[in-house]
Design a protein around this nucleic acid. Structure first.
Length: 494
RNA sequence: GCCCUCAUCGUCUAUCGGUUAGGACAGGGGAUUCUCAAUCCUCAAAGCGGGGUUCAACUCCCCGUGGGGGCACCA
């Protein structure tokens, strides 16, 4: 993956890809930002927002800025920050400017944590004050809109509010087109405790960091009129906007939230999903290359990605599709890489006994086992259960499989015959093993399958698994014969 | 309630006025096979409703309806 950061972003193509130039930075380099707040979770929707920002930066040869919106001081931000850094890094979304982490970060528009930018907010607040665009009320500082005002009773909120006869803000959205929204009430920009609110710091930072394109979730579309008013009041150019559709939970109404199944990036990481598969899947949620292609290398996605190509409608999350994409990536992983990732997954399992046994095994043996099973898996998380019997003699026996297999024919006799037939077979060769079983079966007027099923149960304790000849070869003659000859208690009377 | 926004198979989507409305996931069936997967073939599955505009509308416009978001001294 693309882990070498930031310093020299690739230049895939230029401005011709962007149908609508940002309103006030005609030929400037694209600067986008991802601005999460450290809550301790990294949401899949946030991941996609980060991804689309990153893609746009890489596509245009622009700069991807990471800014931490940690104005909520009450939290243990150091630990929560790590969640953000880890998730972005895992997904391969390297940032050019932002907090320094590994090879990512740096830049001259810092600091990149809002908790460290108080003087900057004060400075911009002074500008607003000087321009006569603020006033105090109830101990807070309010932003004053331009226009005649009148008091009206708001039926819904059951209180009198001051409405301003303002003209609608115009948002030229690269995804939605022209959107007009009227902001007709003053709003708080500094709380009575002295802390600036989101709308202010967000706009100030976008100005100070010279952000050209604001790519964010559609849930921010309604906020944008406030932001446009602030940009104008500060005499700053309004950035281009691109509001991307939201990800809806797969069951039930509403957008996906932290508590929904499959919402957290760390969970995919923990479960051994391939980050490149998740990224590819996320790209497809709201964007497509314009043809039937789905599984695509990230470089190709970068080449084709553009904001006007993003869908306008919300997308429902589909874990089945994700699983399929993940499997497709898993299947195509080169042998060495697959083994490396499999080992990584086992390592992540910590004190798990099965995982420890697998990691303690001979590296060559581990590799053989993994490669034997690669094409059978949907995801790395299936690995421990799928391969347990290779690494221990104390593997479980599946009751259902046992009842099914032991119910027909004379299983004990077949195991004996098989053991005898394999006693002199060359176990270094799949075909030799296959031949031996075939010859035995033919001699008894039976099929390969009649021996295969009972042998599989005896040797692996289950009726699913990799090819039995491969399984035998990897396990080796001694262990196979032992398991055929000394069936576990399970093979007594079931 | 007000404001913004969206609308093609169950799901993700293609189509940028003229197509037998295509693909993918999921589902059904079949082939293959040493189990289970994978793979291949195959079946079923969609233009929310009503008005316009046009020779022609899934595509453009309007109105409904439905979904989503927002309406804080949260971000």
């Amino acid at each position: 993956m693309n882990q070498q950061c930031c310093a020299a972003p690739h230049r895939f193509s230029g401005w011709r890809c962007c149908r609508v130039a940002p309103q006030s930075f005609p030929m400037a380099q694209v600067r986008v930002r991802f601005a999460p707040s450290p809550t301790g979770f990294f949401h899949i929707g946030s991941a996609r927002t980060a991804l689309f920002n990153w893609l746009y930066a890489r596509h245009t040869g622009g700069v991807f800025v990471l800014r931490i919106e940690d104005t909520d001081a009450a939290r243990n931000t150091e630990e929560f920050l790590k969640v953000i850094y880890d998730s972005l890094t895992w997904l391969g979304l390297n940032w050019d400017e932002g907090p320094k982490v590994g090879t990512c970060g740096g830049g001259d528009s810092g600091p990149y944590r809002q908790s460290e930018r108080a003087p900057i907010y004060r400075e911009y607040l002074e500008k607003l004050k000087a321009a006569g665009r603020t006033y105090e009320k109830d101990g807070a500082i309010w932003f004053k809109l331009l226009g005649d005002r009148q008091e009206v009773f708001d039926e819904h909120r059951k209180k009198t509010v001051v409405k301003v006869k303002n003209t609608p803000a115009v948002i030229e959205d690269l995804i939605r087109g022209r959107v007009e929204r009227l902001e007709d009430e003053d709003f708080v920009i500094v709380r009575s405790d002295g802390n600036p609110v989101f709308h202010l710091v967000n706009v100030v930072d976008d100005i100070a960091m010279r952000i050209t394109h604001v790519i964010r979730g559609e849930d921010h579309l309604s906020n944008t009129s406030k932001h446009v008013e602030l940009f104008k009041a500060l005499g700053a150019p309004v950035p281009a906007y691109a509001h991307i559709p939201l990800i809806l939970k797969q069951n039930g109404p509403g957008k996906m939230s932290k508590r929904d199944q499959g919402a957290l990036i760390e969970e995919y990481q923990r479960r051994g999903f391939l980050p490149e598969a998740l990224v590819n899947f996320l790209c497809l949620l709201g964007w497509n290359p314009g043809d039937d292609r789905e599984k695509m290398p990230i470089a190709e996605i970068i080449r084709l990605f553009d904001l006007p190509g993003v869908n306008q409608s919300n997308a429902r999350f589909d874990e089945k599709k994700l699983a399929h994409v993940n499997m497709a990536y898993l299947l195509e992983l080169p042998a060495d890489e697959f083994v490396r990732r499999a080992r990584g997954y086992f390592s992540g399992l910590g004190e798990n006994a099965g995982a420890k046994a697998a990691l303690a095994a001979d590296a060559g043996f581990f590799r053989e086992v993994m490669l034997l099973c690669q094409s059978k898996l949907k995801g790395l998380e299936e690995l421990p259960a799928y391969t347990a019997y290779f690494f221990t003699e104390d593997y479980p026996v599946d009751a259902k499989a046992r009842d099914k297999v032991m119910g027909k024919g004379d299983p004990a006799a077949r195991l004996r015959e098989l053991a005898a037939a394999l006693a002199t077979t060359d176990f270094s060769s799949d075909t030799a093993i296959e031949e031996a079983i075939k010859v035995l079966a033919a001699g008894k007027g039976l099929g390969f399958g009649d021996y295969q099923s009972v042998a599989r149960l005896a040797v692996s304790g289950t009726n699913i698994g990799p090819s039995i000849t491969g399984m035998f070869r990897v396990l080796g003659r001694e262990r196979v014969l032992a398991r055929l000859g000394l069936p576990k208690e399970a093979f007594g009377s079931a």
